[in-house]
Nucleic acid binder design. Structure first.
Length: 209
DNA sequence: TACGGGATCTGT
DNA sequence: CAGATCCCGTAA
């Protein structure tokens, strides 16, 4: 189920749909990060959440502001924000120009622990690969994503892009060896009941609850 | 200009 | 379950 090899990059128009459609379609796709030194890191997307116009949990719910203005733009751009003063979250802007919506990428399945991450936690325990990009904050940490990567096109010429599902994943999904779960979103105070979170069933990287 | 809260994570 | 830590939206 883990994709080690490159697949076809997803072109921008693919993201030009309502976020609740794009979010489940992103499961099984690979998020790819090219670092300044040329190193490329790939991870399979296993958990996503959708945010859309009229949704009280959406950063753009009230109005357009400097921070959320990227969400109003054309689909296929990154929207990165800082949360709790210490973590970053990565979104993909979706839907038509003018409609503020995005998909939060919450977890990745990595194939290896990136070499800039210590293989041991602070308490000394060995980190599991499955948990390195488990959660939106850890995901950005594991791929060195910060505010400098916001408002970038998802394209192979850029520091971030997304690739289509591997043939293996497509087969596994169509034969029900892999399935998705749809449920409510995490960590919100508003829009708590909207079931716009999707994840790959049985994946260790997916948030509990 | 000041203030308070947040799409999180870790250790107690 | 509290604390870390800072940007940004809202109110003044």
């Amino acid at each position: 189920m883990v994709t080690l090899s490159p697949n076809l990059p997803i072109a921008l128009p693919w993201f030009n749909r309502p976020s609740p459609e794009v979010a489940p379609d992103l499961l099984g796709c690979s998020l790819v990060r090219r670092l300044p030194d040329g190193q490329v890191v790939r991870g399979v997307i296993v958990e996503t959440e959708a945010y859309a116009p009229g949704d009280p949990a959406c950063h753009a719910y009230r109005r357009r502001t400097p921070r959320n203005s990227i969400m109003f733009g054309p689909a296929g751009q990154t929207y990165v924000y800082l949360i709790y003063g210490m973590y970053h979250c990565l979104n993909v802007v979706t839907d038509a120009d003018g409609l503020p919506s995005a998909v939060l990428i919450r977890a990745l399945q990595l194939d290896a622990i990136p070499n800039w991450i210590s293989p041991n936690s602070k308490s000394g325990a060995k980190l599991k690969v499955d948990r390195i990009a488990a959660g939106p904050g850890k995901l950005c940490q594991s791929l060195q994503i910060d505010l400098s990567l916001t408002a970038k096109e998802l394209h192979p010429t850029q520091p971030l892009w997304i690739e289509h599902r591997s043939p293996q994943f497509v087969t596994d999904y169509s034969q029900n060896r892999v399935s998705f779960v749809q449920t409510t979103r995490i960590g919100l105070t508003q829009g708590v009941d909207i079931p716009w979170r999707w994840y790959v069933k049985g994946c260790p990287a997916v948030s509990k609850v």
